[in-house]
């Protein structure tokens, strides 16, 4: 898939994954790459940016296996932003699907 395209969507994926529960970095990366082919390392710059823009906060939590892990958590601001992104995405994908449907019909 097109690079530019995925980059915009990656942000949406991260925020959606954090909507219901806080997750640690590895978990986020795994969940995303199960569905979409990405360079996994690019999730981390994104996470740092989202944190600096105050859409996310982080905290450390002990794990049963080994050292503590950094968990990412959506802020209220992040939730609003996610809502906005979801609306945009829905509009966009309905539009594209409609065009595809019409295109397939014509042929």
């Amino acid at each position: 898939m097109n690079i530019q395209f995925k980059k915009g969507v990656l942000e949406l994926c991260v925020l959606v994954l954090l909507q219901k529960n806080d997750r640690y970095g590895y978990e986020l990366v795994q969940k995303i790459s199960e569905q979409i082919a990405i360079s996994e390392g690019s999730v981390y710059p994104l996470l740092r940016r989202l944190k600096k823009e105050e859409y996310l906060t982080t905290y450390l939590q002990e794990s049963r296996e080994g050292p503590s892990r950094k968990y990412y958590c959506l802020t209220d601001q992040g939730r609003n932003y996610l809502k906005q992104l979801l609306d945009e995405w829905q509009q966009f994908s309905t539009g594209v699907n409609q065009l595809i449907k019409e295109g397939v019909h014509d042929e």
């Binding site: 898939m1 690079i3 980059k7 915009g8 990405i38 390392g41 690019s42 710059p45």
Partner: peptide, 12 residues
């Protein structure tokens, strides 16, 4: 710009 190009997703 960085939003557009961020990611370096190499599997295009």
């Amino acid at each position: 710009n960085t939003k557009l190009v961020k990611g370096g997703l190499n599997h295009a």
